[in-house]
């Protein structure tokens, strides 16, 4: 498969009242054609900032360095005009909160029509037909009628579908989904995941999925990158990552999760706690950011920053003392 998006050494520095925040630290990432890559992590790990940085959607004072190559062009160097042509047409993005991403004073049809006019030059009847086709694609019933609805007249799930429809308007090559189901109920979430899975098969686009939900990752992703404190700590094929995580943070997350079948009453079942707190992303020392919370940390962890290194085929980990390989756990 050909590489569609390649991110190299992305670094993002944001500024707030207290100074600099290194929100993303040397993150490299690649998305191949037709591939679903999940970027996973807890709040504040830099996963959303990474996604926003790709399209240069961060506040103007953010400092972004590194390279983001999309179809041979560096998005970070591109003149804004050319980038705008790519945004929404070749790369589309769906955000967590569909209410705030839609303009409340225009109908859904207006807003989809706007995208179609802008990027495809479609107008009038043609645009309307395409828009209703898009709504059917995301399984919105009686699309003609829904096109005339305002965002507030739709439920959260419907709005998120409309957002996806809008994102699909120009047959993007890459769809960035930023926590697409976090604000939704499980049933609605399952419906949206179904739609995304189906769309991916039918349209063959690549997806960069930003989420904190390991269940959503398990459902959709081909490959997973785990982020912690602004850095990527592990990167693997999805089955491998769940079956045999090598980074202690990933392993800890998986064991901290209350899962179906885990019951507090049974045999003193306990969830694994990761002690301590996520570090503040200022003046991070040249050390493993997870070391203070890590059960496997040793002296060397606190005086060098582990780079991401391959540990097995298609599996990379940024850890000096990774979890042992679980025998027979590979699919």
């Amino acid at each position: 498969m050909a590489e569609l998006l390649s991110v190299q050494d992305l670094q993002v520095r944001l500024f707030d009242r207290l100074g600099v925040v290194v929100a993303v630290r040397d993150v490299s990432l690649s998305v191949e054609e037709g591939e679903v890559v999940a970027l996973v992590g807890e709040s504040g790990c830099g996963k959303s900032v990474t996604a926003l940085a790709l399209l240069r959607l961060l506040p103007p004072d953010a400092q972004i360095s590194g390279r983001v190559t999309f179809q041979g062009r560096d998005l970070l160097q591109l003149p804004l005009k050319e980038l705008r042509a790519i945004r929404g047409r070749d790369i589309a993005m769906v955000f967590q909160e569909p209410m705030t991403s839609l303009n409340p004073s225009f109908t859904i049809g207006n807003q989809i029509g706007e995208v179609l006019r802008l990027h495809k030059g479609l107008r009038g009847q043609q645009a309307r037909e395409r828009a209703s086709e898009l709504l059917s694609l995301v399984r919105i019933g009686s699309p003609e009628q829904r096109l005339r609805a305002y965002p507030h007249q739709l439920s959260g799930g419907m709005r998120q579908r409309a957002m996806i429809a809008m994102a699909l308007a120009c047959d993007p090559k890459l769809l960035i989904l930023d926590e697409p189901t976090t604000a939704l109920d499980v049933t609605t979430q399952a419906q949206i995941l179904d739609i995304v899975r189906d769309l991916r098969q039918r349209l063959g686009m690549s997806i960069l999925l930003i989420t904190h939900d390991l269940g959503v990752v398990a459902d959709l992703a081909d490959r997973v990158a785990v982020m912690y404190a602004g850095s990527k700590v592990e990167d693997a094929e999805v089955h491998r990552l769940f079956a045999a995580p090598r980074h202690p943070y990933t392993a800890g997350l998986l064991r901290a999760l209350p899962r179906r079948g885990r019951r507090a009453g049974d045999a003193q079942e306990r969830l694994l706690e990761i002690p301590g707190l996520v570090p503040v992303l200022r003046d991070l020392p040249d050390a493993c950011a997870f070391a203070p919370r890590c059960p496997r940390s040793q002296d060397d962890c606190s005086n060098q920053h582990p780079g991401l290194a391959p540990c097995e085929a298609d599996h990379r980990v940024a850890c000096l003392h990774p979890e042992p390989i679980v025998a027979g756990a590979h699919p």
Binding site: Q189, G215, D219, A243
Partner: peptide, 9 residues
């Protein structure tokens, strides 16, 4: 059935 399980298999 709707709640996704954190296990791809």
């Amino acid at each position: 059935g709707a709640a996704p399980l954190a296990d791809p298999v």
